[in-house]
């Protein structure tokens, strides 16, 4: 007879990565914490946080994602496995869902007259 399979958490590290990524990404774009800025007009990447107007319009989205991925990746490895495995399953969708709602609320600024 085979041993019963316990319904354990699928992956504690994946949980930490996904939860931290969403939250950190929101902070990154709100506070403009981009790891780098890409200037498509001149095809240059700059790591300086100061935007250079002479290089044309910057794209910060890649840099925000890189910042969030870096912090989420590090968090996933430094949070002890025992702690991440004990997290409630609901956080897996509640936190990303809350981040989506927060982003929608913040971005409503585009739909009102300045």
């Amino acid at each position: 007879m085979s041993a019963p399979v316990l319904a354990t958490r699928p992956a504690g590290r994946a949980m930490i990565f996904s939860v931290v990524f969403g939250v950190i990404y929101a902070f990154c774009f709100y506070y403009n914490w981009a790891l780098f800025a890409y200037y498509p007009q001149v095809n240059e990447v700059h790591t300086s946080s100061l935007l250079v107007e002479t290089l044309g319009p910057p794209i910060l989205w890649y840099g925000w994602m890189a910042s969030a991925a870096l912090i989420a990746g590090v968090s996933a490895f430094i949070v002890p496995r025992g702690l991440s495995d004990r997290m409630w399953d609901g956080w897996a969708w509640i936190i990303p869902g809350a981040v989506v709602v927060a982003i929608l609320i913040y971005e409503k600024r585009w739909f009102v007259q300045p």
Binding site: F21, M65, A69
Partner: peptide
């Protein structure tokens, strides 16, 4: 939303 979705993929 694309970024949040990418971040959600592991979980």
């Amino acid at each position: 939303l694309a970024a949040i979705g990418l971040g959600m993929l592991p979980i």
